[in-house]
């Protein structure tokens, strides 16, 4: 399989008033095409910083990240990000939000309408095109965010604890919706979370990041498409236990 994202000797040190704070300490990682990879770890392990660097929103102290062999130096539409906080634009309606990226890139009206229609349907918001975000529930806003980023057709998807603040049923539905779209689009996805079950349920591989180092990578054996009962099977419990043993310390 082709390597899509290559991380080499990545160091990140934040300069603070209380001295240097080393967040990432020499990361190496290959992410393959069409792969769904989760990154889990205790809070403060550097997972969000790692994702920000790949997004191009944060600089590296040393080392480099390559996408398709080219070094990442800044943000680009090729790497779409779904943030934990609501980042959809409150002054745009649902439809205008989903069009946003395409509009920026000057895509033709026809393609724009086509793609917007398609993703509105995929996230089941076709009846809410003219609504403003303030009129939507938390779960709906997240679906708009997902559709907006997917509609922009990035080659890599970065998700930073996107379902962090949501209640369990909403979260489960959104995870299933994410997998649904992912299976249709097959985009390389890096998914940062502190929820072990979520990580296992969604991904091919789970990367465990502790104190700025990758301490293990676990392959998830479940076949796709994945259904809810995976969450309760014995295999899942064993994986959860293994992951928990890393994070607990």
């Amino acid at each position: 399989m082709d390597i899509k994202i290559k991380v080499r000797n990545l160091y990140k040190i934040f300069k603070t008033d209380n001295g240097d704070l080393s967040v990432l300490e020499g990361l190496n990682l290959d992410v393959y095409n069409k792969e769904f990879v989760s990154i889990v770890g205790p809070s403060g392990c550097g997972k969000t910083t790692f994702l920000s660097i790949i997004a191009g929103l944060e600089t590296v102290t040393s080392g480099a990240v390559y996408l398709d062999g080219k070094e990442i130096t800044g943000p680009s539409w090729e790497r779409g990000v779904i943030f934990q906080e609501d980042s959809i634009l409150p002054w745009r309606t649902v439809k205008k939000n989903i069009q946003y990226g395409l509009e920026l890139r000057g895509v033709s009206k026809q393609i724009m309408d086509e793609r917007t229609e398609r993703f509105l349907k995929l996230v089941k918001l076709s009846n809410f095109t003219k609504f403003y975000p303030k009129e939507l529930s938390g779960g709906m806003k997240k679906r708009v965010a997902i559709a907006s980023v997917f509609a922009n057709n990035p080659s890599v998807l970065l998700m930073d604890e996107p379902f962090g603040g949501l209640d369990y049923p909403t979260k489960v539905k959104l995870q299933e919706a994410t997998l649904d779209i992912w299976e249709k689009e097959k985009k390389v996805t890096l998914f940062v979370t502190h929820d072990i079950e979520e990580a296992i349920f969604l991904s091919e591989r789970v990367i465990i990041l502790v104190k700025g180092n990758i301490i293990d990578i676990i392959d998830v054996p479940f076949k796709r498409p994945r259904k809810y009962d995976i969450r309760t099977c014995i295999e899942m419990q064993k994986l959860k236990k293994k992951l928990w043993s890393y994070i607990e310390e």
Partner: peptide
């Protein structure tokens, strides 16, 4: 700041950032 970061990852240049984020946000 989250809107500015979002706009850049969606492909906005500086001019587009002003037109689509800064101006509506300050209204």
């Amino acid at each position: 700041h989250k809107y500015i970061k979002y706009a850049y990852t969606m492909g906005a240049n500086k001019y587009q950032l002003y037109r689509t984020i800064i101006i509506p946000a300050i209204i």
